[in-house]
Design a protein around this nucleic acid. Structure first.
Length: 501
RNA sequence: GCCUCUGUAGCUCAGUGGAUAGAGCACUGGUUUCCGGAACCAGGUGUCGUAGGUUCGAUUCCUACCAGAGGCGCCA
């Protein structure tokens, strides 16, 4: 099977002990799945209609998308779900405000910032104007009862936001599409049946007029059992009901083996309660697992919580604008030989890559210190550093007129730097397999940086094109393997690997 | 009050029941007739929050405490 592009890397090394040889041979660098393939649903991003996305959504979106890529690549059957916030009490005030401002186009064509202003105006009026608040509450009932005009206004609000979400996803180069949207409203018709099933199982009890499940093991500040309110005392449904209907459908109709909730850590207790209730209802079993893939909060430079309410929240749009602006400046400065079109593409790949890597390289559970300078720095342990190593390999190929993909044969180790690089490359499959198993992405980020460092040292000490024929061929093989490893690893993280930058 | 997360170099962060605890940034010096200098090479700093316990051995496991953050009934 040693055709073009087939590289065999086998090295002996004392530090590997009994496993003195290892080989990395497949041209696709495929990693074998150790466990049976599963049907996995990844729930991520989940922005809110009529609200601008912020850095918290960035984390969910970037982490979730990388997990989707990783799990698909190792062979699982992965389904993406974007559980957008398109239902519930806020929509009463949003729709009522829409009526008040006499708009019939449903805020269509509004920019993200205008949507935020719209939302804020509605909230303010809801707090300050009792009459408006009353109308808003009545509007919620109309919405949930399927009133035609209300639904029409609602769907315009949703459509307007969907355009905005789509723009953000395209910009981020994530795989979420409109097909993946399964918002809260999707479960509305399912809520009565969900409540009925819980009731039939004897899990419901009345508490202060609300229907509740009291999952075992949770208590409030007074030590009393903590409820999951399935139906409010006014007969309405809250997010707990929706989450229960969602988990019921995912493990029922959709037949999931595992569902990953890529949601911030503050919602941990809530999700644990939903999972516990689902277990008591029999929707979750020993081989049907719900996992909270939690992540830390976003902090400002003073390590204070960066909240969307506290005035100057950093919006996702502003963040991406700034990252791309800096990347464009760097590309213009360092690669003036690229055409303007190429520069634009590369700046996007570099800027978005830097943002994603800065997020993924930290341990998920930890709070995240947001800092423009660090996030879009283009040196050190960053995506651009790794991308640069990759681009240099293709530069060798261009300079030497070598079709890298056609290089074949064994890697022969004859230099300390070659040996160090080879060792890093051999670690890649295990790192990927561990990431797919643990759902931790930062070790993969670190590993790719290690590979890039090893390559950069090799590059400095070991001429490739100028070497003797056999050494040259062996080094080209090592270069090809390195390029494939970097490109594949970056792709799993959702980061592009340009050949020129 | 109860529960959860965090505490490692000046800063941002990795890491392990085992040997002198590692990266990046910042700082200092050096490297380009040669494949891209967004690079490479060299230089050092730690009471691993505190105190106990388990162990031949603890930064790692257990307990308590301190500090910071988050959560705890009709918002999501």
């Amino acid at each position: 099977m040693a055709g073009p592009g087939f590289i065999n890397l086998t090295i002996a090394d004392d530090t590997l002990g009994a496993r003195a040889t290892a080989a990395l041979t497949d041209e696709r660098l495929r990693v074998e799945l150790t466990a049976a393939p599963q049907r996995i649903i990844v729930d991520y991003s989940a922005p809110n209609v009529a609200k601008e996305m912020h850095v918290g959504h960035l984390r969910s979106t970037v982490i979730g998308d990388a997990l989707v890529r990783l799990l698909e690549w190792v062979g699982h059957d992965v389904r993406r779900e974007n559980h957008i916030g398109d239902w519930g009490t806020p929509f009463g005030m949003l729709i009522e405000h829409l009526v008040d401002v006499e708009e019939t186009d449903g805020a269509g064509g509004r920019s993200a910032a205008e949507l935020t202003a719209f939302y804020r105006a509605a909230s303010t009026k809801f707090a300050d104007d009792p009459d408006f608040a009353r109308r808003a509450r009545e509007r919620v009932v109309l919405l949930q009862n399927g009133d035609g005009e209300t639904r029409e206004l609602w769907s315009r609000l949703v459509a307007s936001s969907m355009v905005y979400f789509g723009e953000v996803y395209r910009r981020l180069d994530v795989r979420l599409a409109s097909d993946d949207v399964v918002g809260e409203s999707h479960y509305h018709d399912d809520l009565p049946a969900t409540v009925a099933e819980l009731d039939g199982l004897g899990l419901l009890s009345d508490s202060d007029g609300a229907l509740c499940v009291f999952p075992d093991g949770f208590s409030n500040r007074h030590g009393d059992p903590l409820p999951l309110i399935v139906q409010k005392s006014d007969g309405g449904f809250g997010y707990a009901s929706t989450d229960l209907a969602t988990i019921r459908q995912r493990f029922g109709e959709l037949g999931a083996d595992r569902v990953l909730y890529v949601v911030g850590l503050p919602q941990r207790q809530h999700l644990e309660m939903v999972f516990a209730a689902a277990r008591q209802a029999g929707w979750l079993t020993d081989d049907r697992e719900a996992v909270h893939v939690g992540f830390g909060s976003v902090l400002d430079r003073d390590r204070r919580l960066l909240r969307s309410r506290s005035g100057e929240a950093v919006t996702l749009t502003d963040l991406l604008d700034e990252a791309l602006r800096r990347a464009a400046a760097a590309v213009a400065d360092k690669s003036p030989d690229l055409t303007p079109e190429e520069q634009t593409v590369v700046a996007t790949q570099v800027g978005i890559g830097a943002v994603k890597y800065a997020d993924l390289a930290n341990e998920r559970h930890k709070d995240y210190v947001f800092d423009y300078d660090r996030m879009v720095a283009f040196e050190g342990a960053t995506a651009p550093y790794i991308q640069y190593a990759h681009a240099r390999i293709h530069s060798i190929s261009r300079r030497g007129g070598v079709d890298l993909a056609a290089v074949t044969g064994p890697v022969v180790i004859g230099h300390r730097r070659e040996h160090e690089l080879a060792l890093e490359l051999l670690g890649f499959p295990d790192v990927v397999a561990n990431a797919a198993d643990s759902l931790e992405l930062h070790p993969l980020c670190r590993h790719l940086h290690d590979v890039a460092v090893a390559f950069s040292s090799f590059y400095d000490d070991c001429p490739v094109l100028g070497a003797e024929p056999e050494v040259r061929r062996a080094r080209l093989a090592l270069c090809l393997l390195t390029a494939r490893t970097l490109a594949q690893g970056l792709d799993l993280l959702g980061i592009a690997a340009p050949r020129r930058m």
